[in-house]
Write a protein that binds this DNA or RNA. Structure first.
Length: 333
RNA sequence: GCCGGGGUAGCUCAGUGGUAGAGCACUGCUCUGAAAAAGCAGUGGUCGAAGGUCCGAUUCCUUUCCCCGGCA
C-alpha cells in the first residue's frame, strides 16, 4: 500500500498526561491534534471525559472532539472515516472522497470546541498527532483495519439480545462456522455483531485485514501503577470539584436518559446511579475510583501487546527533550 | 460480671463429621461499526488458639483469647 505520510500516535492509560504531552509536542513540531477518545467525541461531555479546554489547546487545532450527539451512538467506523479525513486535511493532501462536502462535524464550537477544518486547509503540511486512550480507535486509523460494511441495525440487535449467548452461538455456528470458531462465545456484543453481519449481508464475516496506511511513530506514556492510581484519584476529585455532577445533571435534563448515561461507563455511569439514588455519594466516589483504576489496566492490556510502541515517561525537561528528538528522527528519516 | 450472637481467602459472608466455597479485591487475558463498552481465566485459607471424643474435626465437647449487642 502506498505510503500516506507520517503520523505520531500518543497513547497511554487515563490520567497519564497525554493531553499535556501532545500539546507540547505539537507546538514544537508544528503538529495538529486528533483526539482518539471514544467519549470525547460527544458534545456536552467535557468534565467527565477530561476534554481539553480551549485555553489548554494553546492555539493548536484539535479534531474529533464534539462530533457527535450523546443521544446517538457513535462507533469506530465513523471515527475511522472522520479521523482519516482530518489527517488528510492536516497534511494538506487531497481528500479522496467527499472533497466538496465539508464535514459539518468539525464546525462545532463551544469553549471546548475544535478548530474548523477550513482553517487547516489553508495552513496544511503539518504533522498529525493521534492522541488518546481508546486503543480500538487508534488501531482503526493507524493500522487501517477494514471494518465490515454492515451498519448497526438496532432493531435487529434488540431482537437478538433476547437470546441467550448459547443460542446466539449456536445460530452463528450454523450461519458462519468460521467466525464461530474464533469468537468469544460468551460475549453477547461480539455474537450479536457477527450475527448482524451475516444476516444483513448474507455473507460470512470476512477475516480481518489490515494494511498500514501511514508511517507511524507510537509513543506510549508509561506510569508505575501506584503513581497512576494516585493521579487517577487526584483527577477524579478535581473533576468533582469542577462540577462533574452538574454536568451529568445537565445532560439528563437535556433529554439523555439515565440508561443512556450509564452506557457511557465510568463517570457518567456512576454519577447517573448516584443521581438516581442507587448509590450514596461516598459509594459513588470509591466505586468510581476503583473502576477507573480497572479501566486503566484494561487499556494497558490492550497496549502492551503492541511491540511498536516506544514507552516513555516524560516527567522531566530532559526526558521530554529525548522524546522530541525521537520524533524529529522519525520525521526526518 | 451475667446472658445472647459471632470469630472461615485482603474485605463481606455461606457451608459441611471425610482437610472448604461465593461476591468483591488482586493477577493475567480477549477484542472484526456499542470499546470508559462487552467478555474470559487464574492466584489465594494450618476454617481464632489449646485440649478432648472419633478411623477421621473446620464441623461435636471443654477450656481460653478477641469482637458485637443486651442486662447489670
Amino acid at each position: 500500500m502506498e505510503n500516506q505520510g507520517k503520523i505520531i500516535v500518543i497513547l497511554g492509560p487515563t490520567s497519564s498526561g497525554k493531553t499535556d504531552l501532545s500539546i507540547k509536542l505539537a507546538k514544537k513540531l508544528d503538529g495538529e491534534i486528533i483526539s482518539a477518545d471514544s467519549r470525547q467525541v460527544y458534545k456536552g461531555m467535557n468534565i467527565g471525559t477530561g476534554k481539553v479546554t480551549k485555553k489548554e489547546m494553546a492555539g493548536i487545532p484539535h479534531y474529533l472532539l464534539d462530533v457527535a450527539n450523546p443521544k446517538t451512538r457513535f462507533s469506530v467506523a465513523q471515527y475511522q472515516k472522520l479521523a482519516l479525513r482530518a489527517i488528510k486535511n492536516i497534511q494538506n493532501l487531497p481528500a479522496q472522497a467527499g472533497k466538496n462536502s465539508p464535514p459539518t462535524n468539525f464546525e462545532s464550537q463551544n469553549k471546548f470546541g475544535s478548530k474548523k477544518i477550513s482553517n487547516s486547509k489553508l495552513v496544511g503540511g503539518k504533522i498529525p498527532f493521534l492522541v488518546g486512550g481508546t486503543g480500538f480507535y487508534i488501531q482503526s486509523v493507524a493500522d487501517g483495519i477494514v471494518i465490515p460494511e454492515v451498519k448497526p441495525d438496532w432493531r435487529l440487535r434488540k431482537k437478538l439480545e433476547k437470546l441467550t449467548t448459547e443460542q446466539m452461538f449456536k445460530k452463528l455456528k450454523e450461519l458462519d462456522p468460521k467466525r464461530a470458531k474464533s469468537i468469544d462465545k460468551h460475549n453477547p456484543r461480539r455474537l450479536i455483531r457477527a450475527l448482524e453481519i451475516v444476516l444483513k449481508s448474507k455473507r460470512p464475516v470476512g477475516s480481518l485485514s489490515h494494511s498500514e496506511r501511514f508511517k507511524t511513530l507510537f509513543l506510549g506514556i508509561k506510569k508505575d501503577q501506584k503513581e497512576l492510581n494516585g493521579l487517577i484519584k487526584k483527577r477524579l476529585l478535581k473533576r468533582l470539584d469542577e462540577g462533574m455532577i452538574n454536568e451529568v445533571k445537565r445532560l439528563h435534563k437535556s433529554g439523555i436518559s439515565f440508561k443512556r448515561l450509564e452506557e457511557f461507563g465510568l463517570e457518567y455511569r456512576y454519577v447517573a446511579q448516584y443521581l438516581q439514588g442507587k448509590l450514596n455519594y461516598n459509594e459513588m466516589v470509591t466505586k468510581l475510583e476503583k473502576e477507573i483504576e480497572h479501566y486503566a489496566k484494561r487499556q494497558m492490556t490492550w497496549f502492551k501487546r503492541d511491540k511498536r510502541i516506544h514507552w516513555i515517561n516524560p516527567h522531566t525537561k530532559k526526558k521530554l527533550n529525548e522524546v522530541v528528538k525521537l520524533c524529529k528522527n522519525f520525521l526526518i528519516e
